[in-house]
Write a protein that binds this DNA or RNA. Structure first.
Length: 460
RNA sequence: GGCCGGAUGGCAGAGUGGUGAUGCAGAGGACUGCAAAUCCUCGUACGUCGGUUCAAUUCCGGCUCCGGCCUCCA
């Protein structure tokens, strides 16, 4: 296969050529654990999980690393304000994060390193940067010297002059250059801190990703992903740290960034009241529907999150599951399945074009619905199911999908009993009673489908 | 102010220098006791103004509008 990815570094779509075809390595910036993940946090997780699934299908070994930032001033602030310990907050939040991302069918990364467990590696990296003349200590801080790096700004395509001209923040007096950024900063006694050659302190934001990606993926690796908002300064500074420490040409080969997420046409923010956590959303929609909504827009485009979009994703899943359920059982010819899956793979291989992949799945589902040939149905069913596996959807049985729904209302047994009563009425041609029962179920949010295999029902 | 994206039919959303993806919604029909699901038919969209071209939604430029980033700092 030929995978093409849009590389932010070159601003062009490039053919993906792994450094080691026997072992593909990718790093994605993970959460700072101080609060529930919101839907904007979920987008890169779902996007890069989909890439991970595609890579795993193509290459014999893939290592996916995603960090957990558990030392950060936002965490300190949360601890001070709540009176709880930092450890309590980070452990609880990391557990929530796992629950929520699991519910979106995001596979766990192979490595999930925590910043606080890699302080030693960070100190070593900072020391190396000082030794090579790329960093300096000043007033308890260690700063990266932007002037020491000729091509600083290559990823975000900013010149240092532009950055200085555009700076709107007062420059700290200990910086030699306004563009210099913090690698290490001093901690007060009440702040978390570690002993270092520069005194007790804590790491700056960017250094952990350089230290941990280097440890788990090597000095050079294939893909580095994250949200577009991380291009500058975070990823720019990671590049500066890693390439200055390890040499030119090292670090990530392909930089992939997902677009921003908006809600109902507006920027998501707490003050606008359009701030949704994944946890809240899971209470009103299945995880797969949330996931499919996130994949319904190409990852590079801005995504406008709407209730209508979520409803449409759920309807698409209804259609896919319904096609799978009506397909029946049968053994599929593997080569034929591969051929049917081709359009889906081709879409994903073209810079992860998930909307086109979903359209290809609709084509498969449509042909599956109208096929009268059992062997063909088995092929199409298998292809649809495998396509779902690549996108991280269609992971449950059609029956559990259609029976899942909002909590409350009649239970499965009660619904089954009402359906049986209605069918008895139909057999007796008492259609008034049959329709009364169906209406009662409809009022409870249950839809009936009479078919050759009997009556099926669905919630929602 | 600097830099970077984006503008496609009622909605969502791909894509392409020349046969109007795909889904949802809507209209008609088949099927059904009635429905639901499914199937069939139906939509002449590409912000604006110019340019290049035999031909532009697709390439180039101006304009308008929308969104984001501008260094650890809220």
């Amino acid at each position: 296969m030929t995978l093409a990815v849009y590389n932010t570094m070159s601003r062009a779509k490039e053919t993906f050529v792994p450094l080691d075809p026997g072992h593909v390595r990718m790093y994605v910036c993970g959460p700072t654990v101080y609060d529930r993940a919101h839907i904007g946090n979920a987008r890169p997780v779902v996007v890069f999980d989909t890439l991970y699934r595609l890579l795993k299908r193509t290459y014999p070994r893939v290592t996916y690393a995603r960090n957990i930032t558990d030392v950060d001033d936002k965490i300190n602030a949360r601890a001070a304000q709540s009176g709880r310990s930092i450890r309590d907050i980070t452990e609880e939040t990391a557990a929530w994060y796992h629950q929520d991302m699991d519910a979106l069918n995001a596979l766990r990364p192979d490595v999930e390193p925590r910043a606080t467990e890699h302080i030693g590696e960070m100190i070593a990296l900072i020391s190396a940067l000082i030794d090579k003349g790329h960093a300096y200590a000043a007033e308890g801080h260690v700063l990266f010297s932007v002037a020491s790096m000729a091509d600083y700004g290559a990823l975000s395509r900013r010149s240092r002059d532009e950055m200085i001209a555009g700076a709107r923040v007062e420059v700290a007096p200990y910086k030699k250059d306004p563009g210099d950024f913090v690698l290490w900063k001093p901690s007060t006694p009440d702040q978390p801190g570690w002993d270092s050659p520069w005194g007790r302190g804590r790491p700056g934001w960017h250094i952990e990703c350089s230290a941990m990606s280097g440890k788990y993926l090597g000095e050079s690796f294939d893909v580095h992903g994250g949200g577009q908002d991380l291009v500058f300064p975070h990823h720019e500074n990671e590049i500066a740290q890693s390439t200055c420490a390890h040499g030119p040409g090292t670090f990530a080969r392909y930089w992939m960034h997902n677009g921003y997420l908006m809600v109902e046409g507006e920027k998501m923010s707490k003050s606008l009241g359009n701030f949704f956590t994944v946890h809240d959303l899971l209470a009103k929609a299945p995880g797969e529907a949330i996931r499919l909504t996130l994949l319904s827009t190409h990852y590079h485009q801005p995504l406008n999150w709407t209730d209508d979009g979520l409803t449409q994703a759920k309807q698409a899943l209804d259609r896919f599951y319904s096609a799978l359920e009506r397909a029946g059982e049968g053994t599929a010819d593997a080569a034929a399945v591969e051929a049917e899956l081709r359009p889906v793979l081709a879409a994903l291989e073209d810079d992860l074009n998930t909307p086109a992949a979903i359209a290809a799945m609709h084509d498969i589902a449509g042909r599956l619905n109208k096929s009268a040939d059992a062997a063909e149905r088995a092929v199409l069913k298998s292809a649809l199911s495998q396509a779902g596996g690549l996108l991280g959807i269609l992971a449950q049985t059609p029956e559990s999908w259609r029976r899942a729904g909002a909590a409350g209302g009649p239970g499965d047994a009660e619904i089954d009993a009402m359906v049986a009563a209605r069918n008895a009425a139909r057999a007796a041609r008492d259609f008034a009673e049959a329709d009364r029962l169906r209406q009662a179920l409809a009022d409870a949010g249950v839809t009936l489908e009479d078919g050759p295999a009997g009556t099926r029902w669905r919630r929602g």
